[in-house]
């Protein structure tokens, strides 16, 4: 099939970018969207032009690198799929496709379609972990957890941190991402000791990074390649409210006891 691509080109963070139009011919319906981009880059290289920079790694929908806003939809038109899982049969001959990077102040531009998502890493560092004493490996199933709880936690844990939620949100909010992490850990017994501190620290880091606020439009849930429900945002809000009410910063332990 023959397509017309409008691709965002920007050589660096401080230079202004613009949409460039590239016609591309001979696209196979069985190609993935990224394979189509590989084809485009070969074409550009042969024409002596700079290929389009785009992030990609696993190409099987688990790494969360291949982030493209495709004709106004994060990861394109397919539900529950990343850009690499999107196939060209989603389009038809003669289609015009707009491809832009994630747009958020907290995701600074690197080049073309690549943005820096380390803001997510800093949110995780703020509290997206549990502390376990080292030593011999614990027995599996040592702590019994109900199936419903495990399922809900696992659904939230499916988050790959791609940032589609931020990209799709009209406020560029990271609430679905942060909510998913807080839900994933906060539901499990292992996550209880740090639950209050986690909710406070992660939400505050999220705000610090310059993400917008949640207005519950539901766009994130629709864009999420792992179809994480906005219920995680509700859980984050409750955990944050409860923690804000009851959490007391532990006093410094002075001197040797």
């Amino acid at each position: 099939m023959r397509l017309t691509l409008h691709v965002w080109r920007q050589s660096g963070p401080s230079t202004p970018g613009k949409l460039e139009t590239y016609p591309i011919d001979g696209v196979d319906a069985d190609m993935s969207f990224l394979e189509m981009f590989d084809m485009l880059n070969e074409q550009l290289t042969l024409e002596g032009k700079e290929p389009v920079a785009f992030a990609h790694d696993c190409r099987e929908g688990i790494c969360g690198s291949c982030n493209m806003m495709i004709s106004g939809q994060a990861h394109g038109p397919w539900k529950g799929a990343t850009t690499c899982q999107l196939h060209m049969r989603a389009f038809k001959d003669g289609d015009e496709i707009w491809v832009e990077p994630w747009r958020a102040k907290a995701f600074p531009m690197v080049k073309d379609l690549v943005v820096d998502r380390s803001a997510f890493d800093r949110i995780i560092q703020a509290g997206g972990y549990i502390s376990v004493n080292t030593g011999g490996a614990r027995d599996a199933n040592e702590i019994l957890i109900g199936k419903e709880v495990v399922d809900e936690s696992m659904d939230a844990a499916a988050c790959i941190g791609c940032g589609a939620c931020v990209a799709a949100c009209p406020n560029a909010s990271a609430s679905l991402f942060t909510g998913a992490k807080i839900t994933h850990l906060g539901l499990l017994p292992q996550g209880q000791p740090e639950r209050d501190r986690r909710a406070l620290a992660m939400v505050e880091q999220m705000d610090l990074e310059g993400f917008g606020h949640c207005t519950l439009t539901g766009e994130c849930q629709e864009a999420c390649p792992k179809e994480i429900s906005i219920d995680v945002i509700k859980r984050m809000n409750r955990d944050y409210a409860v923690a804000a009410a009851r959490y007391v910063e532990p006093k410094e332990t002075a001197g040797a006891g």
Binding site: W8, G72, W98, K105, A172, H213, E219
Partner: peptide, 21 residues
């Protein structure tokens, strides 16, 4: 919140297709 939201996306999308808003 509106000011923060506007600041959170300084560069708008050329094409945006809201799904459920």
């Amino acid at each position: 919140l509106t000011q923060r939201s506007n600041a959170a996306r300084p560069q708008a999308y050329a094409k945006k297709a809201p799904q459920v808003t």
